[in-house]
Amino acid sequence: MTPQENVDLSGRVAVVTGAASGIGRASALMFAAAGAAVVCCDKAEGVEATAEAIRTAGGRAAARVMDAGHEPDVAAAMEAAEAEFGGLDVVFANAGITGGVREFLDAGPEVWAEVLRVNLIGPYLAIRHAGPRMAARGGGSIIMTASVAGIRANAGPASYSASKAGVVNLAQTAAQAFSGTGVRVNCICPGLIETEMTRPIYDYAKAMGTEVPIGMSNPLKRGGVPDEIATAALFLASPLSSYVNGHALVVDGGLSSSHPWTGARPFSAARGGEAKAAE
Score class of each variant (00 low, 15 high):
193 I>T: 11
189 C>G: 05
154 N>D: 09
202 Y>C: 01
146 A>C: 10
138 G>H: 12
117 R>L: 07
131 G>R: 02
104 F>G: 00
170 L>Q: 13
166 G>D: 14
196 E>T: 04
178 F>H: 09
84 E>Y: 12
116 L>M: 15
120 L>T: 14
168 V>G: 02
93 A>Q: 13
122 G>N: 09
194 E>F: 02
147 S>K: 06
125 L>R: 03
101 V>Y: 12
153 A>Q: 09
139 G>C: 05
170 L>P: 09
190 P>T: 04
130 A>G: 02
124 Y>M: 15
195 T>M: 04
186 N>L: 13
127 I>K: 00
95 A>K: 09
101 V>W: 13
104 F>P: 00
200 P>T: 08
160 Y>H: 03
138 G>P: 05
167 V>R: 05
120 L>P: 11
190 P>Y: 06
95 A>M: 11
134 M>N: 04
142 I>S: 06
158 A>L: 14
190 P>E: 02
92 F>I: 10
189 C>L: 07
60 R>L: 14
182 G>Y: 09
162 A>N: 09
163 S>W: 12
168 V>R: 10
172 Q>G: 00
165 A>N: 03
182 G>Q: 10
194 E>P: 06
139 G>V: 06
129 H>G: 00
107 A>P: 00
134 M>A: 05
176 Q>V: 15
93 A>C: 15
162 A>S: 14
157 P>D: 13
